[in-house]
Design a protein around this nucleic acid. Structure first.
Length: 103
DNA sequence: AACATGACGGACA
DNA sequence: GTGTCCGCCATGT
């Protein structure tokens, strides 16, 4: 299956995350049969063009923390998660095990 | 081809 | 819980 880009596969998985839940980059990578490619998932999400088509904000690191670098985007993600009922602290951390989506 | 980068994860102190 | 290190792997230069 090499027709689809790595991006497309990542987006396909991310789009399945229901509102109010999150997945770690590692989880997404695992579903793509690339258990060690978590970093690439983050890389792919950072290049999402249709930001309204892919719920990129529902993907966080495995520690339960918003790991976007840019302060602006990080705060944006925090707000989006808050809107879905996920209580993200001001330091961008939250109880991931309480919201983790397990397919 | 080689080297650097990155929205990471896991192991360890 | 926090910080540092090292391993992964697609891309970009």
């Amino acid at each position: 299956m090499k027709n689809n880009n790595f991006f497309e596969r990542v987006y396909a998985v991310v789009r399945k995350i229901p509102e109010g839940y999150v997945m770690s980059y590692g989880q997404v990578a695992l579903i793509l049969d690339m258990p060690r490619a978590a970093r690439e998932v983050g890389w792919a999400l950072s290049r999402v063009e249709d930001r309204d088509m892919v719920p990129w904000w529902r993907v966080v690191n495995n520690k339960g923390r918003v790991s976007i670098k840019g302060q602006y985007s990080a705060e944006e993600q925090r707000q989006l998660l808050l809107q879905e009922g996920i209580k993200v602290s001001k330091d961008f951390t939250f109880e991931i095990e309480k919201y983790r989506f397990n397919p």
